[in-house]
Each structure stands twice: as C-alpha cells, then as structure tokens.
C-alpha cells in the first residue's frame, strides 16, 4: 500500500538540523561539542590535517505515486583544524547545487548476468 491517506506526504531525507543548532556552531569549539549539538556527522572528508563534517537536510514532498519534489536542502559543512577545533562553517542551499546529468556508462564487472533464456530456465 502507498504512503498515507493524503495525496502528498512531507519527508525529511538525511539529517534533521534543528535551526537553533546552526547558530550554536562557532569557531574554536571541539568535535565533542559539535557532536553533542548536531549528532555524529552524516559524511566526513579530510583535507590533509584538516577534517570536514557534513550534515545534509533535504525536505521533500512525495506524491503517493512516487514522485519526489525537493522543497529545500541545507548542506552544513563544519571544518576542523589539526587539533580538532572548529575553524570554519559553511552552509549551502538548494540553489548552490549544480544541475548535471549523471553519467550512464559504468565500469564493466564480472559475474554472469543471466541472459534472457537462462533467466527463464533458471527460475523454474
């Protein structure tokens, strides 16, 4: 069965970043404090001795027949220096997202991808 009794349902994909938390992140804070406020990072990255934590919140509306419309997105990046203190904080929104078309070609991989005939035979 599908989503809910109503036609459109609102969902949050990724992290729910409470608005109050955004202001509380200031340079000089420790990783423990950031974890306390925002929770453990959704994705991380390191730049040499600097590390970066990312929290991505995407608000979407989903129709019952599976169409997802992105309402807004907040990408919060927190950068830490060598001794794990907050150095910088950056916020990107939906319009910062670049519009690209995703490459369809893929790296070939091993493994018998059953052809039409033996898919039929193997299923009995």
């Amino acid at each position: 069965c599908t989503s809910s009794t109503s036609l459109i349902s609102k969902r949050t994909q990724g992290y729910e970043i409470p608005d109050s938390a955004l202001q509380q992140i200031r340079p000089g804070q420790s990783q423990q404090l950031v974890t306390l406020v925002l929770g453990s990072p959704q994705s991380t990255n390191t730049f040499g001795d600097r590390t970066a934590w990312y929290y991505v919140e995407t608000k979407v509306n989903q129709t019952s027949f599976g169409l997802t419309m992105v309402q807004e997105r907040t990408v919060l990046a927190v950068y830490f220096d060598r001794n794990k203190k907050v150095v910088d904080r950056a916020i990107y929104t939906l319009d910062d997202g670049k519009v690209i078309n995703i490459e369809t070609r893929r790296t070939p991989s091993f493994g018998e991808d059953a052809t039409f005939i033996d898919a039929i035979l193997s299923s009995f």
Binding site: N45, Y54, V75, Y92, T93, D96, I100
Partner: peptide, 23 residues
C-alpha cells in the same frame, strides 16, 4: 579495484549536485 576511477568520478558528481565545489 577497477572501480576506483569511477568511484572518484561519482564523488565529483555527488559533491557537485550538493554544491560542495571544493570537494
């Protein structure tokens, strides 16, 4: 693995889609 190159390419795509251009 033979997929490492594509993985790096896909990271480029993913970060662009999120707007994280430096990454």
């Amino acid at each position: 693995s033979t997929h490492i190159e594509e993985a790096l390419y896909r990271l480029t795509e993913g970060y662009l889609l999120l707007g994280l251009t430096t990454e």
